[in-house]
Amino acid sequence: MGLNRKDVLGLQELTAEEIQLILDTAVPMKDILSREIKKVPTLRGKVVATLFYEPSTRTRMSFELAAKYMGADTMSLAVATSSVQKGESFRDTAQTIESMGVDTVILRHSVSGSAQYLAKIVKASVINGGDGTREHPTQALLDMFTIREKRGSFAGMKVVILGDILHSRVARSNIWGLTKMGAEVRVVGPPTLMPPEIDKLGVKVYYQAEDALEGADVINVLRLQLERQQKGLFPTVREYHQLYGLTPARLKLARPDALVLHPGPMNRGVEIAPEVADSPQSTIVEQVANGVAIRMALLYLLMEGGSSSEGIS
């Protein structure tokens, strides 16, 4: 068992078996979160660094907690407080971090492919904490963990991803992961926020929220970046909400027990109505805890191992 790889850069590269293993490993990790002593010594002496070129409080906190619960030490480098702003190159920053003895680097970056780039530069493990509009694997894994915890499996599940698909790394990672696990994925949003040829990833494309929501088991609502409106990609937030906002009426089109996921932070009243966000069908709060468990699992599974497979007794 174990992920026989140095890095986790996306779900595109993971097999169904590897995804299964990560989800399975997160189950005992989640138990640790509810203990009084939320710490295991597994990663004692290891250093996990978060390198964030984009502001994100929750993802960074989640990774740092996960690392600490696993017994690792953490350090964080955020763009606002580092030499990055003084124009240090990405390579120099990466090499500096590595020379401090870091074992795992969590990277968040606004440019797609930066995680691949970092993985080539450093010997340390790299976990992609979100790169541009490409992938956000840990978010998708925690979404999948949440779905599996509530529904048991993915096979045949109708999962709707609703919103700005074009700019969403969460959507791409979810599509990779869910389709590999046998779910039926529907993507829906305005055509101007739908990447061309996304149907080639094995998803059904909708432009009408009502059509996509019909009979859905899971609805993953994406955060709408309000600056997209300034670029003219949709006319107004008001019209967006009218067409694509997940309202109680629209939620009724899905199965009565449909789950509502949102990666956060939410724009209440824009992509999701407050009544839906706070409804019993919403898993938004649980997703946060599950995120820590998933990240603990990944940190464990990427731990450097030797070549022997001998045990102790």
């Binding site: 068992m1 174990g2 992920l3 026989n4 293993l21 399975d24 490993t25 189950v27 005992p28 990790m29 138990d31 295991v40 010594p41 597994t42 696993m70 699992a297 464990y300 599974l301 731990m303 450097e304 191992g305 030797g306 070549s307 022997s308 497979s309 001998e310 045990g311 102790i312």
Partner: peptide, 19 residues
């Protein structure tokens, strides 16, 4: 599993299960 003292010398990692 999470308390083993040989995790960094063995590989691949053993499966963690629930306590």
């Amino acid at each position: 599993t999470l308390y083993r003292d040989d995790l960094t010398t063995i590989g691949p990692q053993p499966m963690v299960q629930q306590t």
